[in-house]
Simulated scan of single mutants.
Amino acid sequence: MPDTPIRLLIADDQALVRGALTTLLNLEPDIEVVAQASTGAEALSAVEQLNGHVDVIVMDIEMPVMDGITASAQLLKRWPHLGILMVTTFGRPGYLQRCMAAGARGFMVKDSPVDELTKNVRIVAAGGKVIDPELAIESLSVGSNPLTEREIEALRVSADGGTIADIARTLGISQGTTRNHISMAMIKTSARTRADAVRIATEQGWL
């Protein structure tokens, strides 16, 4: 066993997944799971408590309180040495683009074989990058996210339902501006309704 095993943090909101990954990865002679987190916020706290002494984070995307992409961006601002490997159920092109923009070094889907996960953890720990090739090709064919940050915010709030007035109140902007953001989002997603725009943007991984 190496003198200094890869120090790993696993962040996933499903306890069974965290436990299974911890058990499997701890079987590897060169990997040690030093912490677990169920939200992006908990991942931040865990790295803080470990004084940044983490090599790789296996990070889920869809988690409560703070999603994995937001957490990754915040973590890397303070600890740029971290190697973040995004592992998600949904292989959406927009997710890949957002993860790479946040600074993640890897992206893979959860139904990948365990030996592929361990191989990718080692690659990321060594400073390399790993991306599912099929998803990379699909991401290039789809193109970049056409939505602005404000349009994304408007659609996210729209997903919870409510009137234009409700959305405007939540965002702290006028109803007219809110309508403009949603209208532009519908045009860019070729959606016929607000709900359809939310669905399309979600399926692409833009929200």
Rank of each mutant, 00 (worst) to 15 (best):
P2A: 02
L9N: 07
D12F: 02
D12W: 05
D13H: 09
R18D: 05
A20P: 10
T23E: 11
L25I: 08
L27C: 10
P29L: 02
D30Y: 04
I31N: 05
I31S: 03
E32R: 12
V33C: 12
A35E: 11
Q36N: 11
E42Y: 04
E42V: 04
S45G: 09
A46R: 11
E48A: 12
D55Y: 02
V56G: 10
I57H: 09
V58G: 08
I61E: 07
I61T: 07
I61R: 07
P64C: 06
I69V: 07
I69W: 01
T70D: 02
S72I: 01
A73T: 05
A73K: 09
Q74S: 04
Q74E: 09
R78M: 06
W79V: 04
L85P: 10
G94E: 00
Y95S: 12
R98M: 12
M100W: 09
M100F: 14
M100L: 14
M100E: 12
G103H: 05
G106C: 13
G106P: 13
F107K: 06
V114Q: 11
E116C: 09
L117K: 04
K119M: 15
R122M: 09
V124N: 07
V130T: 15
I131L: 15
D132T: 15
E134P: 07
E138G: 10
E138V: 15
G143K: 01
G143P: 01
S144E: 11
R150K: 15
R156C: 07
R156T: 09
D160C: 05
G161E: 02
G161K: 03
A165W: 00
R169I: 08
L171D: 10
G172H: 06
I173C: 13
I173N: 06
I173T: 13
S174I: 05
Q175C: 13
Q175L: 07
T177C: 14
R179F: 09
I182Q: 03
A185I: 01
A185K: 03
A191S: 08
R194M: 00
D196R: 06
D196V: 00
D196M: 08
A201D: 03
A201G: 04
Q204A: 13
G205H: 08
